[in-house]
Design a protein around this nucleic acid. Sequence first.
DNA 1: CGCAAAGTTGAGGGATATCAACGAGTGTGG
DNA 2: CCACACTCGTTGATATCCCTCAACTTTGCG
Lengths: 250, 250
Amino acid sequence: MQRQIMPSNLQEGAQAAGRAASLGLSELAALLKIDFDGFGIGANTSFTLRRVQQGMALYRAGDQFGPIYAIRSGTFKSVFLDENGSYQVLGFPMAGEVLGLDGIEAQRYRTEAVALEDSEVAIIPFPRLAHLGGRAGALQQFVYRLLSRQLAREHMQMWLLGSLGAESRVAAFLLIVGARYARLGYSDTRFNLRMTRLDLGSFLGLTQETVSRALSRFHDAGVIRVHNKEVKIVEVQELHQIVANARHSG
Amino acid sequence: MQRQIMPSNLQEGAQAAGRAASLGLSELAALLKIDFDGFGIGANTSFTLRRVQQGMALYRAGDQFGPIYAIRSGTFKSVFLDENGSYQVLGFPMAGEVLGLDGIEAQRYRTEAVALEDSEVAIIPFPRLAHLGGRAGALQQFVYRLLSRQLAREHMQMWLLGSLGAESRVAAFLLIVGARYARLGYSDTRFNLRMTRLDLGSFLGLTQETVSRALSRFHDAGVIRVHNKEVKIVEVQELHQIVANARHSG
DNA sequence: CGCAAAGTTGAGGGATATCAACGAGTGTGG
DNA sequence: CCACACTCGTTGATATCCCTCAACTTTGCG
Protein backbone atom coordinates (compact mmCIF):
# COMPACT_ATOMS: atom_id res chain seq x y z
CA MET A 1 0.00 0.00 0.00
CA GLN A 2 1.53 3.25 -1.10
CA ARG A 3 1.26 6.28 1.08
CA GLN A 4 0.75 9.66 -0.51
CA ILE A 5 3.33 12.26 0.22
CA MET A 6 1.92 15.10 2.33
CA PRO A 7 1.08 18.30 0.49
CA SER A 8 3.63 20.98 1.32
CA ASN A 9 2.05 23.82 3.17
CA LEU A 10 4.77 26.26 2.25
CA GLN A 11 4.12 28.71 5.05
CA GLU A 12 7.73 28.67 6.16
CA GLY A 13 9.11 29.73 2.79
CA ALA A 14 7.24 32.97 3.02
CA GLN A 15 8.43 33.72 6.53
CA ALA A 16 12.13 34.14 5.66
CA ALA A 17 11.48 37.78 6.25
CA GLY A 18 14.31 40.18 5.49
CA ARG A 19 16.16 38.13 2.91
CA ALA A 20 15.01 38.78 -0.61
CA ALA A 21 13.77 35.41 -1.79
CA SER A 22 14.51 36.04 -5.41
CA LEU A 23 17.15 35.74 -8.07
CA GLY A 24 18.20 38.14 -10.84
CA LEU A 25 18.30 37.12 -14.46
CA SER A 26 22.05 37.18 -14.70
CA GLU A 27 22.34 35.06 -11.58
CA LEU A 28 19.91 32.63 -13.12
CA ALA A 29 21.95 32.48 -16.31
CA ALA A 30 25.07 31.79 -14.26
CA LEU A 31 23.30 29.07 -12.32
CA LEU A 32 22.19 27.38 -15.51
CA LYS A 33 25.58 27.94 -17.13
CA ILE A 34 24.11 29.65 -20.16
CA ASP A 35 25.80 32.82 -21.33
CA PHE A 36 23.63 35.63 -22.22
CA ASP A 37 24.85 37.60 -25.19
CA GLY A 38 22.31 40.32 -25.62
CA PHE A 39 20.63 41.14 -22.39
CA GLY A 40 18.12 43.67 -23.52
CA ILE A 41 14.67 43.37 -22.11
CA GLY A 42 14.97 41.23 -19.09
CA ALA A 43 18.14 42.37 -17.36
CA ASN A 44 16.17 43.60 -14.39
CA THR A 45 13.79 40.66 -14.29
CA SER A 46 13.90 38.68 -11.09
CA PHE A 47 12.66 35.26 -10.13
CA THR A 48 11.01 34.23 -6.90
CA LEU A 49 12.59 31.43 -4.91
CA ARG A 50 10.68 28.61 -3.36
CA ARG A 51 11.77 26.08 -0.80
CA VAL A 52 10.81 22.46 -1.12
CA GLN A 53 11.13 20.09 1.80
CA GLN A 54 12.48 16.62 1.48
CA GLY A 55 9.81 14.26 0.22
CA MET A 56 7.57 17.07 -1.04
CA ALA A 57 6.43 17.22 -4.65
CA LEU A 58 7.06 20.41 -6.61
CA TYR A 59 4.36 19.36 -9.04
CA ARG A 60 2.49 16.18 -9.82
CA ALA A 61 1.70 14.29 -12.98
CA GLY A 62 -1.49 15.68 -14.42
CA ASP A 63 -1.27 19.07 -12.73
CA GLN A 64 -2.10 22.08 -14.83
CA PHE A 65 1.09 23.41 -16.39
CA GLY A 66 2.37 26.60 -14.84
CA PRO A 67 5.92 27.70 -14.25
CA ILE A 68 9.13 25.85 -14.90
CA TYR A 69 11.70 25.66 -12.15
CA ALA A 70 15.44 26.14 -12.02
CA ILE A 71 17.02 24.22 -9.17
CA ARG A 72 19.13 26.48 -6.99
CA SER A 73 20.14 23.85 -4.45
CA GLY A 74 19.24 20.31 -3.59
CA THR A 75 18.30 17.17 -5.49
CA PHE A 76 15.05 15.92 -6.96
CA LYS A 77 13.79 12.82 -8.59
CA SER A 78 11.72 13.10 -11.72
CA VAL A 79 9.17 10.31 -12.03
CA PHE A 80 6.96 9.26 -14.87
CA LEU A 81 3.64 7.79 -13.77
CA ASP A 82 1.52 5.82 -16.15
CA GLU A 83 -2.23 5.67 -15.68
CA ASN A 84 -1.86 1.96 -14.93
CA GLY A 85 0.31 2.86 -11.99
CA SER A 86 3.60 2.02 -13.62
CA TYR A 87 6.49 3.92 -12.18
CA GLN A 88 9.67 5.00 -13.92
CA VAL A 89 12.34 7.30 -12.53
CA LEU A 90 13.53 9.53 -15.38
CA GLY A 91 16.35 11.32 -13.65
CA PHE A 92 17.78 12.96 -10.57
CA PRO A 93 18.01 16.66 -11.39
CA MET A 94 20.35 18.74 -9.27
CA ALA A 95 21.32 22.39 -8.89
CA GLY A 96 21.65 24.10 -12.26
CA GLU A 97 19.04 21.96 -13.95
CA VAL A 98 15.47 22.75 -14.90
CA LEU A 99 12.23 21.04 -13.97
CA GLY A 100 8.86 21.03 -15.65
CA LEU A 101 9.82 21.38 -19.30
CA ASP A 102 7.83 18.35 -20.34
CA GLY A 103 4.60 20.09 -19.46
CA ILE A 104 4.72 22.73 -22.18
CA GLU A 105 3.16 20.74 -24.95
CA ALA A 106 0.09 19.35 -23.28
CA GLN A 107 -0.18 22.21 -20.78
CA ARG A 108 -0.10 19.58 -18.08
CA TYR A 109 2.92 18.21 -16.25
CA ARG A 110 3.47 14.64 -17.36
CA THR A 111 5.83 13.76 -14.58
CA GLU A 112 6.22 14.34 -10.90
CA ALA A 113 9.17 16.09 -9.26
CA VAL A 114 9.93 15.09 -5.67
CA ALA A 115 12.67 16.63 -3.52
CA LEU A 116 15.19 14.09 -2.23
CA GLU A 117 16.52 16.63 0.25
CA ASP A 118 15.52 20.10 1.33
CA SER A 119 15.91 22.13 -1.82
CA GLU A 120 15.39 25.54 -3.33
CA VAL A 121 14.09 26.41 -6.79
CA ALA A 122 13.66 29.61 -8.78
CA ILE A 123 10.22 29.97 -10.30
CA ILE A 124 10.35 30.83 -14.01
CA PRO A 125 6.92 31.96 -15.20
CA PHE A 126 7.17 30.21 -18.51
CA PRO A 127 3.84 31.13 -20.04
CA ARG A 128 4.51 34.82 -19.48
CA LEU A 129 8.04 34.48 -20.74
CA ALA A 130 6.98 32.69 -23.87
CA HIS A 131 4.59 35.44 -24.80
CA LEU A 132 7.16 38.19 -24.51
CA GLY A 133 8.06 38.10 -28.15
CA GLY A 134 4.83 39.78 -29.12
CA ARG A 135 3.88 38.96 -32.66
CA ALA A 136 6.81 36.59 -33.00
CA GLY A 137 5.63 34.92 -29.83
CA ALA A 138 3.30 32.56 -31.62
CA LEU A 139 6.17 31.29 -33.65
CA GLN A 140 8.26 30.77 -30.56
CA GLN A 141 5.47 28.87 -28.89
CA PHE A 142 5.43 26.66 -31.90
CA VAL A 143 9.01 25.61 -31.41
CA TYR A 144 8.64 25.22 -27.67
CA ARG A 145 5.94 22.71 -28.30
CA LEU A 146 8.08 20.77 -30.69
CA LEU A 147 10.83 20.48 -28.13
CA SER A 148 8.48 19.61 -25.32
CA ARG A 149 6.76 16.99 -27.42
CA GLN A 150 10.08 15.41 -28.16
CA LEU A 151 10.84 15.23 -24.45
CA ALA A 152 7.57 13.46 -23.79
CA ARG A 153 8.34 10.93 -26.48
CA GLU A 154 11.69 10.14 -25.00
CA HIS A 155 10.16 9.65 -21.58
CA MET A 156 7.95 6.95 -23.04
CA GLN A 157 11.01 5.41 -24.54
CA MET A 158 12.86 5.37 -21.23
CA TRP A 159 9.89 3.74 -19.61
CA LEU A 160 9.91 1.09 -22.31
CA LEU A 161 13.61 0.38 -21.87
CA GLY A 162 13.55 0.59 -18.11
CA SER A 163 10.64 -1.52 -17.10
CA LEU A 164 9.65 -3.99 -19.79
CA GLY A 165 10.93 -7.45 -20.70
CA ALA A 166 11.96 -8.33 -24.23
CA GLU A 167 8.62 -9.52 -25.57
CA SER A 168 6.78 -6.65 -23.94
CA ARG A 169 9.14 -4.21 -25.59
CA VAL A 170 8.55 -5.63 -29.01
CA ALA A 171 4.80 -5.75 -28.44
CA ALA A 172 4.77 -2.16 -27.19
CA PHE A 173 6.79 -1.09 -30.18
CA LEU A 174 4.32 -2.63 -32.60
CA LEU A 175 1.44 -0.86 -30.90
CA ILE A 176 3.27 2.44 -30.92
CA VAL A 177 4.14 2.16 -34.58
CA GLY A 178 0.54 1.29 -35.35
CA ALA A 179 -0.65 4.35 -33.48
CA ARG A 180 1.76 6.53 -35.38
CA TYR A 181 0.57 5.24 -38.71
CA ALA A 182 -2.99 5.80 -37.59
CA ARG A 183 -2.21 9.45 -36.89
CA LEU A 184 -1.07 9.73 -40.48
CA GLY A 185 -4.24 8.19 -41.79
CA TYR A 186 -2.89 4.72 -42.51
CA SER A 187 -3.94 1.42 -41.03
CA ASP A 188 -2.79 0.84 -37.48
CA THR A 189 -2.83 -2.92 -37.87
CA ARG A 190 -1.06 -3.43 -41.17
CA PHE A 191 2.16 -1.65 -41.90
CA ASN A 192 5.75 -1.90 -42.91
CA LEU A 193 8.63 -1.86 -40.46
CA ARG A 194 11.14 0.14 -42.37
CA MET A 195 14.13 -0.56 -40.13
CA THR A 196 16.31 -3.66 -39.93
CA ARG A 197 16.03 -6.02 -36.99
CA LEU A 198 19.44 -4.81 -35.92
CA ASP A 199 18.32 -1.19 -35.70
CA LEU A 200 15.14 -2.24 -33.98
CA GLY A 201 17.21 -4.22 -31.52
CA SER A 202 19.44 -1.25 -30.83
CA PHE A 203 16.38 0.91 -30.26
CA LEU A 204 14.79 -1.59 -27.91
CA GLY A 205 17.97 -2.54 -26.09
CA LEU A 206 17.85 -6.10 -27.45
CA THR A 207 19.82 -8.18 -29.92
CA GLN A 208 18.48 -8.80 -33.39
CA GLU A 209 18.00 -12.45 -32.55
CA THR A 210 15.78 -11.66 -29.60
CA VAL A 211 13.68 -9.30 -31.72
CA SER A 212 13.35 -11.92 -34.41
CA ARG A 213 12.35 -14.59 -31.93
CA ALA A 214 9.76 -12.37 -30.30
CA LEU A 215 8.18 -11.62 -33.66
CA SER A 216 8.25 -15.30 -34.60
CA ARG A 217 6.59 -16.26 -31.35
CA PHE A 218 3.85 -13.67 -31.82
CA HIS A 219 3.40 -14.98 -35.31
CA ASP A 220 3.18 -18.60 -34.23
CA ALA A 221 0.74 -17.63 -31.48
CA GLY A 222 -1.46 -15.99 -34.09
CA VAL A 223 -1.17 -12.56 -32.50
CA ILE A 224 0.42 -11.02 -35.56
CA ARG A 225 1.38 -12.05 -39.04
CA VAL A 226 4.87 -11.12 -40.06
CA HIS A 227 6.84 -11.65 -43.23
CA ASN A 228 10.09 -9.77 -43.36
CA LYS A 229 9.24 -6.14 -42.71
CA GLU A 230 5.57 -6.52 -43.43
CA VAL A 231 3.48 -6.76 -40.25
CA LYS A 232 -0.19 -7.32 -39.67
CA ILE A 233 -1.56 -7.14 -36.16
CA VAL A 234 -4.27 -9.74 -35.68
CA GLU A 235 -5.04 -9.58 -31.98
CA VAL A 236 -4.47 -6.06 -30.72
CA GLN A 237 -5.86 -6.92 -27.34
CA GLU A 238 -3.44 -9.75 -26.97
CA LEU A 239 -0.53 -7.41 -27.67
CA HIS A 240 -1.74 -5.08 -24.96
CA GLN A 241 -1.86 -8.04 -22.65
CA ILE A 242 1.75 -8.89 -23.40
CA VAL A 243 2.81 -5.33 -22.64
CA ALA A 244 0.99 -5.50 -19.33
CA ASN A 245 3.02 -8.56 -18.36
CA ALA A 246 6.01 -6.40 -17.67
CA ARG A 247 9.10 -7.75 -16.03
CA HIS A 248 9.59 -5.59 -12.98
CA SER A 249 8.36 -2.36 -11.43
CA GLY A 250 5.37 -2.44 -13.76
CA MET B 1 3.82 -10.73 -50.78
CA GLN B 2 3.56 -7.03 -50.44
CA ARG B 3 5.77 -4.97 -52.59
CA GLN B 4 7.54 -1.95 -51.28
CA ILE B 5 6.34 1.26 -52.67
CA MET B 6 8.67 1.88 -55.55
CA PRO B 7 11.41 4.33 -54.80
CA SER B 8 10.47 7.37 -56.77
CA ASN B 9 13.51 8.18 -58.73
CA LEU B 10 12.83 11.74 -58.05
CA GLN B 11 13.39 12.94 -61.49
CA GLU B 12 9.75 13.64 -61.68
CA GLY B 13 9.79 15.62 -58.47
CA ALA B 14 12.42 17.97 -59.74
CA GLN B 15 10.92 18.22 -63.11
CA ALA B 16 7.50 19.17 -61.83
CA ALA B 17 8.47 22.54 -63.04
CA GLY B 18 5.85 25.01 -62.01
CA ARG B 19 5.18 23.44 -58.60
CA ALA B 20 6.92 25.32 -55.80
CA ALA B 21 8.92 22.91 -53.63
CA SER B 22 7.95 24.66 -50.47
CA LEU B 23 5.43 24.66 -47.68
CA GLY B 24 3.47 27.49 -46.11
CA LEU B 25 3.46 28.12 -42.39
CA SER B 26 -0.11 27.02 -41.90
CA GLU B 27 0.55 23.84 -43.81
CA LEU B 28 3.54 23.23 -41.61
CA ALA B 29 1.45 23.77 -38.52
CA ALA B 30 -1.10 21.28 -39.81
CA LEU B 31 1.62 18.76 -40.58
CA LEU B 32 3.00 19.04 -37.07
CA LYS B 33 -0.49 19.06 -35.55
CA ILE B 34 0.09 22.25 -33.67
CA ASP B 35 -2.62 24.85 -33.80
CA PHE B 36 -1.58 28.33 -34.31
CA ASP B 37 -3.57 30.87 -32.35
CA GLY B 38 -2.09 34.17 -33.33
CA PHE B 39 -0.58 34.07 -36.73
CA GLY B 40 0.86 37.52 -36.99
CA ILE B 41 4.29 37.81 -38.42
CA GLY B 42 4.90 34.63 -40.25
CA ALA B 43 1.66 33.84 -42.01
CA ASN B 44 3.29 34.28 -45.36
CA THR B 45 6.52 32.55 -44.42
CA SER B 46 7.28 29.48 -46.47
CA PHE B 47 9.66 26.63 -46.01
CA THR B 48 11.77 24.94 -48.62
CA LEU B 49 11.35 21.23 -49.11
CA ARG B 50 14.24 18.84 -49.49
CA ARG B 51 14.25 15.25 -50.67
CA VAL B 52 16.38 12.66 -48.97
CA GLN B 53 17.09 9.35 -50.60
CA GLN B 54 16.96 6.08 -48.73
CA GLY B 55 20.17 5.54 -46.84
CA MET B 56 21.25 9.17 -47.03
CA ALA B 57 21.98 11.20 -43.92
CA LEU B 58 20.19 14.48 -43.43
CA TYR B 59 22.93 15.54 -41.05
CA ARG B 60 25.68 13.78 -39.19
CA ALA B 61 26.84 13.76 -35.60
CA GLY B 62 29.28 16.60 -35.11
CA ASP B 63 28.03 18.71 -38.03
CA GLN B 64 27.65 22.41 -37.44
CA PHE B 65 24.09 23.12 -36.33
CA GLY B 66 21.94 24.73 -38.96
CA PRO B 67 18.26 24.22 -39.66
CA ILE B 68 15.82 21.85 -38.03
CA TYR B 69 13.67 19.67 -40.25
CA ALA B 70 10.00 18.77 -40.26
CA ILE B 71 9.37 15.43 -41.91
CA ARG B 72 6.78 15.71 -44.63
CA SER B 73 6.88 12.11 -45.75
CA GLY B 74 9.01 9.07 -45.12
CA THR B 75 10.80 7.52 -42.17
CA PHE B 76 14.17 8.17 -40.58
CA LYS B 77 16.30 6.66 -37.91
CA SER B 78 17.93 8.89 -35.37
CA VAL B 79 21.23 7.51 -34.15
CA PHE B 80 23.48 8.54 -31.32
CA LEU B 81 27.15 7.94 -31.99
CA ASP B 82 29.66 7.98 -29.20
CA GLU B 83 33.25 8.93 -29.88
CA ASN B 84 34.20 5.36 -28.95
CA GLY B 85 32.09 4.16 -31.82
CA SER B 86 29.17 3.04 -29.73
CA TYR B 87 25.93 3.06 -31.60
CA GLN B 88 22.45 3.63 -30.20
CA VAL B 89 19.25 4.13 -32.17
CA LEU B 90 17.19 6.80 -30.44
CA GLY B 91 14.05 6.63 -32.50
CA PHE B 92 12.37 6.28 -35.85
CA PRO B 93 10.85 9.66 -36.64
CA MET B 94 8.09 9.75 -39.23
CA ALA B 95 5.99 12.33 -41.02
CA GLY B 96 4.87 15.07 -38.66
CA GLU B 97 7.92 14.85 -36.45
CA VAL B 98 10.93 17.10 -36.21
CA LEU B 99 14.62 16.36 -36.63
CA GLY B 100 17.67 18.18 -35.36
CA LEU B 101 16.38 19.67 -32.14
CA ASP B 102 19.19 18.22 -30.08
CA GLY B 103 21.71 20.42 -31.86
CA ILE B 104 20.51 23.73 -30.49
CA GLU B 105 22.42 23.73 -27.27
CA ALA B 106 25.91 22.88 -28.47
CA GLN B 107 25.37 24.35 -31.92
CA ARG B 108 26.38 20.98 -33.30
CA TYR B 109 24.15 18.05 -34.13
CA ARG B 110 24.76 15.30 -31.62
CA THR B 111 23.04 12.60 -33.56
CA GLU B 112 22.73 11.43 -37.10
CA ALA B 113 19.47 11.23 -39.07
CA VAL B 114 19.35 8.64 -41.84
CA ALA B 115 16.42 8.12 -44.19
CA LEU B 116 15.00 4.60 -44.10
CA GLU B 117 13.07 5.26 -47.31
CA ASP B 118 12.94 8.08 -49.79
CA SER B 119 11.64 10.99 -47.76
CA GLU B 120 10.87 14.66 -47.86
CA VAL B 121 11.54 17.27 -45.20
CA ALA B 122 10.72 20.94 -44.76
CA ILE B 123 13.72 23.04 -43.82
CA ILE B 124 13.07 25.27 -40.83
CA PRO B 125 15.81 27.87 -40.48
CA PHE B 126 15.93 27.69 -36.74
CA PRO B 127 18.64 30.25 -36.00
CA ARG B 128 16.82 32.89 -37.99
CA LEU B 129 13.53 31.93 -36.45
CA ALA B 130 14.91 32.09 -32.95
CA HIS B 131 16.15 35.62 -33.45
CA LEU B 132 12.85 36.94 -34.65
CA GLY B 133 11.78 38.04 -31.23
CA GLY B 134 14.16 40.99 -31.33
CA ARG B 135 15.09 42.09 -27.82
CA ALA B 136 13.10 39.27 -26.31
CA GLY B 137 15.01 36.90 -28.56
CA ALA B 138 17.84 36.46 -26.12
CA LEU B 139 15.41 35.25 -23.53
CA GLN B 140 13.85 32.83 -25.95
CA GLN B 141 17.26 31.47 -26.89
CA PHE B 142 17.79 30.87 -23.24
CA VAL B 143 14.82 28.59 -23.01
CA TYR B 144 15.60 26.81 -26.24
CA ARG B 145 18.91 25.87 -24.82
CA LEU B 146 17.35 24.51 -21.68
CA LEU B 147 15.09 22.26 -23.68
CA SER B 148 17.79 21.14 -26.04
CA ARG B 149 20.13 20.40 -23.17
CA GLN B 150 17.50 18.25 -21.58
CA LEU B 151 17.12 16.29 -24.80
CA ALA B 152 20.84 15.63 -24.92
CA ARG B 153 20.75 14.36 -21.35
CA GLU B 154 17.98 11.93 -22.13
CA HIS B 155 19.84 10.62 -25.11
CA MET B 156 22.73 9.71 -22.84
CA GLN B 157 20.27 7.99 -20.60
CA MET B 158 18.79 5.96 -23.41
CA TRP B 159 22.25 4.91 -24.46
CA LEU B 160 22.94 3.80 -20.91
CA LEU B 161 19.75 1.76 -20.72
CA GLY B 162 20.03 0.37 -24.19
CA SER B 163 23.57 -0.82 -24.44
CA LEU B 164 25.12 -1.42 -21.05
CA GLY B 165 25.01 -4.39 -18.68
CA ALA B 166 24.02 -4.03 -15.04
CA GLU B 167 27.45 -3.36 -13.55
CA SER B 168 28.34 -0.98 -16.35
CA ARG B 169 25.17 0.97 -15.72
CA VAL B 170 25.91 1.36 -12.05
CA ALA B 171 29.53 2.30 -12.77
CA ALA B 172 28.45 4.84 -15.40
CA PHE B 173 25.94 6.29 -12.99
CA LEU B 174 28.57 6.80 -10.31
CA LEU B 175 30.84 8.58 -12.79
CA ILE B 176 28.00 10.76 -14.03
CA VAL B 177 26.98 11.74 -10.53
CA GLY B 178 30.59 12.53 -9.71
CA ALA B 179 30.84 14.76 -12.78
CA ARG B 180 27.68 16.58 -11.80
CA TYR B 181 28.94 17.25 -8.31
CA ALA B 182 32.20 18.46 -9.80
CA ARG B 183 30.32 21.01 -11.91
CA LEU B 184 28.83 22.34 -8.71
CA GLY B 185 32.20 22.67 -7.06
CA TYR B 186 32.02 19.56 -4.90
CA SER B 187 34.24 16.51 -4.91
CA ASP B 188 33.66 14.17 -7.81
CA THR B 189 34.92 11.17 -5.87
CA ARG B 190 33.15 11.49 -2.56
CA PHE B 191 29.46 12.19 -2.42
CA ASN B 192 26.09 11.19 -1.17
CA LEU B 193 23.59 9.25 -3.24
CA ARG B 194 20.39 10.88 -2.18
CA MET B 195 18.03 8.36 -3.72
CA THR B 196 17.04 4.92 -2.46
CA ARG B 197 18.33 1.79 -4.16
CA LEU B 198 14.82 1.23 -5.41
CA ASP B 199 14.69 4.57 -7.21
CA LEU B 200 18.17 4.05 -8.53
CA GLY B 201 17.09 0.66 -9.80
CA SER B 202 14.07 2.14 -11.51
CA PHE B 203 16.25 4.76 -13.13
CA LEU B 204 18.80 2.21 -14.33
CA GLY B 205 16.29 -0.42 -15.34
CA LEU B 206 17.47 -2.83 -12.65
CA THR B 207 16.12 -4.24 -9.42
CA GLN B 208 17.27 -2.86 -6.11
CA GLU B 209 19.02 -6.14 -5.39
CA THR B 210 21.08 -5.93 -8.52
CA VAL B 211 22.08 -2.36 -7.74
CA SER B 212 23.03 -3.35 -4.23
CA ARG B 213 25.08 -6.29 -5.44
CA ALA B 214 26.91 -4.22 -8.02
CA LEU B 215 27.86 -1.66 -5.38
CA SER B 216 28.94 -4.40 -3.00
CA ARG B 217 31.10 -5.99 -5.65
CA PHE B 218 32.76 -2.67 -6.48
CA HIS B 219 33.32 -2.19 -2.78
CA ASP B 220 34.86 -5.64 -2.30
CA ALA B 221 37.05 -5.11 -5.34
CA GLY B 222 38.35 -1.90 -3.79
CA VAL B 223 37.06 0.26 -6.64
CA ILE B 224 34.78 2.27 -4.38
CA ARG B 225 33.91 2.51 -0.74
CA VAL B 226 30.24 2.53 0.04
CA HIS B 227 28.29 2.73 3.26
CA ASN B 228 24.59 3.26 2.77
CA LYS B 229 24.23 6.34 0.64
CA GLU B 230 27.78 7.55 1.22
CA VAL B 231 30.07 6.76 -1.70
CA LYS B 232 33.77 7.28 -2.23
CA ILE B 233 35.29 6.47 -5.59
CA VAL B 234 38.75 4.99 -5.10
CA GLU B 235 39.74 3.86 -8.59
CA VAL B 236 38.13 6.14 -11.17
CA GLN B 237 40.02 4.49 -13.98
CA GLU B 238 38.71 1.11 -12.95
CA LEU B 239 35.15 2.39 -13.11
CA HIS B 240 35.72 3.66 -16.63
CA GLN B 241 37.03 0.24 -17.49
CA ILE B 242 33.85 -1.39 -16.22
CA VAL B 243 31.73 0.94 -18.33
CA ALA B 244 33.79 0.05 -21.37
CA ASN B 245 32.96 -3.62 -20.82
CA ALA B 246 29.49 -3.09 -22.16
CA ARG B 247 27.17 -5.95 -22.87
CA HIS B 248 26.26 -5.64 -26.50
CA SER B 249 26.45 -3.19 -29.36
CA GLY B 250 29.07 -1.30 -27.40
C1' DC C 1 24.37 -16.20 -61.17
C1' DG C 2 26.91 -14.95 -57.15
C1' DC C 3 27.80 -12.23 -53.45
C1' DA C 4 26.57 -9.49 -49.37
C1' DA C 5 23.28 -8.15 -46.10
C1' DA C 6 19.34 -9.37 -43.50
C1' DG C 7 16.68 -12.61 -41.10
C1' DT C 8 15.74 -17.04 -38.77
C1' DT C 9 16.47 -20.85 -35.78
C1' DG C 10 18.88 -23.82 -32.40
C1' DA C 11 21.98 -25.01 -28.42
C1' DG C 12 24.06 -23.50 -24.36
C1' DG C 13 25.52 -20.64 -20.66
C1' DG C 14 25.88 -16.46 -18.14
C1' DA C 15 23.62 -12.53 -16.23
C1' DT C 16 19.93 -10.80 -13.75
C1' DA C 17 15.23 -11.22 -11.83
C1' DT C 18 12.71 -13.42 -8.22
C1' DC C 19 11.87 -15.16 -3.74
C1' DA C 20 13.17 -15.22 0.91
C1' DA C 21 15.43 -14.10 5.18
C1' DC C 22 17.84 -11.03 7.81
C1' DG C 23 20.25 -6.71 9.55
C1' DA C 24 20.51 -1.79 9.97
C1' DG C 25 18.62 2.69 10.40
C1' DT C 26 14.82 5.79 11.75
C1' DG C 27 10.84 7.71 13.79
C1' DT C 28 6.97 7.10 17.17
C1' DG C 29 4.69 6.39 21.29
C1' DG C 30 4.61 4.44 25.81
C1' DC D 1 14.91 5.05 27.48
C1' DC D 2 13.05 1.21 25.30
C1' DA D 3 9.77 -1.40 22.39
C1' DC D 4 7.78 -1.38 18.14
C1' DA D 5 6.90 -0.79 13.41
C1' DC D 6 8.43 0.40 9.14
C1' DT D 7 11.51 1.36 5.37
C1' DC D 8 15.81 0.55 3.44
C1' DG D 9 19.66 -2.26 2.34
C1' DT D 10 22.21 -6.61 2.01
C1' DT D 11 22.96 -11.35 1.00
C1' DG D 12 21.93 -16.10 -0.60
C1' DA D 13 19.61 -19.73 -3.46
C1' DT D 14 17.25 -20.59 -7.45
C1' DA D 15 14.86 -19.93 -11.84
C1' DT D 16 14.52 -17.71 -16.02
C1' DC D 17 15.44 -14.67 -19.50
C1' DC D 18 18.18 -13.20 -22.98
C1' DC D 19 22.77 -12.91 -24.94
C1' DT D 20 26.32 -15.40 -27.42
C1' DC D 21 27.89 -18.33 -30.91
C1' DA D 22 26.91 -20.87 -34.91
C1' DA D 23 24.70 -22.62 -39.01
C1' DC D 24 21.56 -21.92 -42.29
C1' DT D 25 17.98 -19.59 -45.33
C1' DT D 26 16.16 -15.68 -47.62
C1' DT D 27 16.35 -11.37 -49.83
C1' DG D 28 18.32 -7.74 -52.47
C1' DC D 29 21.33 -6.22 -55.95
C1' DG D 30 25.10 -5.99 -59.43
